[in-house]
Amino acid sequence: MQTVKGIVARAKGRPVTLEEINVPDPGPGEAVVEIQACGVCHTDLHYRDGGINDDFPFLLGHEAAGVVEAVGEGVTNVKPGDYVILNWRAVCGDCRACRRGEPWYCFSTFNATQKMTLSDGTELTPALGIGAFIEKTLVHAGQCTPVDPAASPAAAGLLGCGVMAGIGAAINTGAVGRGKSVAVIGCGGVGCAAVAGSALAGAGTIIAVDVDDRKLEWASGLGATHTVNSRGRDAVEAIHELTGGFGADVVIDAVGIPETWKQAFYARDLAGTVVLVGVPHPDAKVPEIPLLDVFGRGGSLKSSWYGDCLPSRDFPMLIDLYLQGRLDLDAFVSERIGIDDVEAAFQKMSDGDVLRSVVIL
């Protein structure tokens, strides 16, 4: 066992604190990873504010890259010294999704068996089974995906959650392809990643929608062909106007509130696809829409879990595209901060001042 420093949320809505944390030596199937960088994601803020569950105290952080320090018995997929991105979909290979050949939906993903603890022995709940606002973390070995070590940790780690969620929402869930029209509602980190993924897939028209001109500028830099500030213009009308009156083939809701989901529903073309990737508040309800409209418009209404990604397939591919200059992951890194700056980063994120603050360890 070793003792390191990490960021903990002790109670709902309270500021996070830097604590001493005990990290066990890896047991069977586990790995200890020395964290090099970890992005500050909205999901961490949801944990802090009690929007996920009440299993406090939480060890926050999950968008991380680092180097494997040690592995436990039976681990064969990684070894000490491997440069890895951490993931929260450690595919089991045996659940009903995996057995039917859809491991990107794995319903029984693995986490470490042992618990990291505070210095007084209190067990911690790691965010998304990772807990990476910490110098070293304990995870299941299946949560480690080796990638090319030439990739910057600050950029690479973002594939661990938000950027992968957005890119995957476009490419994997929405099946965006050459010449398709796409609208993305909400252009924070996940929405901008959906824009970048749509551009990467060869979409012809990519419409970015937000109420903040700064975010629309970020989206333009990542591949949006048109922008709509919906504070002063009806988003549905604008998307129809920009797609010849038809609506977009794929509309991605990266906000996750009833109003934006309803906009996405009506902004798509006949037989078009709606993808919900923004995480809704637990109290949010599907807006009232006539069932005849659901039937009459056809198409698909989908939710995107983690961009429906398969880490072993998608992380190395996207890192290769990044190193080839075809995917600008660096554009998502708004600032590099220290581990004790996480609380301030939450405020910047809430204010819309950053795409991602990244903790450098």
Results as ranks from 00 to 15, higher is better:
residue 4 V to E: 08
residue 11 A to N: 12
residue 12 K to Y: 01
residue 13 G to W: 05
residue 15 P to V: 07
residue 27 G to K: 08
residue 29 G to Y: 04
residue 30 E to C: 07
residue 31 A to F: 13
residue 32 V to C: 14
residue 33 V to D: 12
residue 34 E to A: 13
residue 37 A to L: 08
residue 40 V to A: 01
residue 56 F to P: 10
residue 58 F to W: 12
residue 60 L to C: 09
residue 65 A to F: 14
residue 70 A to E: 13
residue 71 V to P: 00
residue 75 V to A: 06
residue 77 N to S: 15
residue 79 K to A: 15
residue 86 L to D: 15
residue 91 V to N: 04
residue 92 C to I: 01
residue 93 G to M: 07
residue 97 A to S: 12
residue 109 T to R: 02
residue 109 T to V: 10
residue 112 A to K: 12
residue 112 A to Q: 11
residue 115 K to S: 14
residue 116 M to V: 10
residue 117 T to Y: 00
residue 125 T to K: 11
residue 128 L to M: 13
residue 133 F to H: 14
residue 134 I to S: 13
residue 138 L to W: 12
residue 140 H to G: 13
residue 142 G to T: 06
residue 143 Q to L: 07
residue 144 C to D: 04
residue 153 P to E: 07
residue 156 A to C: 05
residue 157 G to Y: 11
residue 157 G to R: 03
residue 161 C to I: 04
residue 163 V to L: 03
residue 166 G to P: 04
residue 170 A to D: 03
residue 170 A to V: 07
residue 174 G to P: 14
residue 174 G to Y: 04
residue 176 V to T: 07
residue 177 G to E: 08
residue 178 R to P: 14
residue 179 G to W: 12
residue 181 S to F: 09
residue 186 G to S: 01
residue 190 V to L: 10
residue 191 G to E: 08
residue 196 A to V: 05
residue 204 G to W: 02
residue 204 G to L: 10
residue 205 T to E: 14
residue 206 I to A: 05
residue 209 V to N: 06
residue 210 D to E: 10
residue 211 V to Q: 01
residue 214 R to C: 02
residue 215 K to M: 04
residue 221 G to D: 06
residue 224 A to M: 03
residue 225 T to C: 08
residue 226 H to A: 10
residue 227 T to A: 11
residue 228 V to G: 06
residue 232 G to N: 14
residue 232 G to T: 15
residue 233 R to L: 15
residue 234 D to T: 07
residue 235 A to P: 02
residue 238 A to T: 04
residue 240 H to M: 05
residue 240 H to A: 06
residue 249 D to R: 00
residue 252 I to K: 05
residue 256 G to K: 02
residue 257 I to S: 03
residue 260 T to R: 03
residue 264 A to M: 09
residue 266 Y to A: 04
residue 269 D to K: 12
residue 270 L to F: 15
residue 270 L to R: 06
residue 272 G to M: 07
residue 272 G to S: 06
residue 273 T to D: 09
residue 276 L to R: 03
residue 279 V to W: 05
residue 280 P to R: 01
residue 281 H to D: 14
residue 284 A to C: 09
residue 287 P to M: 02
residue 287 P to N: 02
residue 290 P to Q: 08
residue 291 L to G: 13
residue 292 L to F: 14
residue 296 G to K: 02
residue 297 R to E: 09
residue 305 W to S: 11
residue 305 W to Y: 12
residue 307 G to F: 03
residue 314 D to F: 06
residue 317 M to T: 13
residue 332 F to D: 01
residue 337 I to N: 08
residue 339 I to K: 10
residue 339 I to T: 03
residue 340 D to R: 07
residue 342 V to D: 08
residue 343 E to S: 03
residue 344 A to C: 03
residue 345 A to R: 04
residue 347 Q to D: 15
residue 352 G to E: 00
residue 355 L to W: 13
residue 357 S to K: 00
residue 361 L to Q: 14
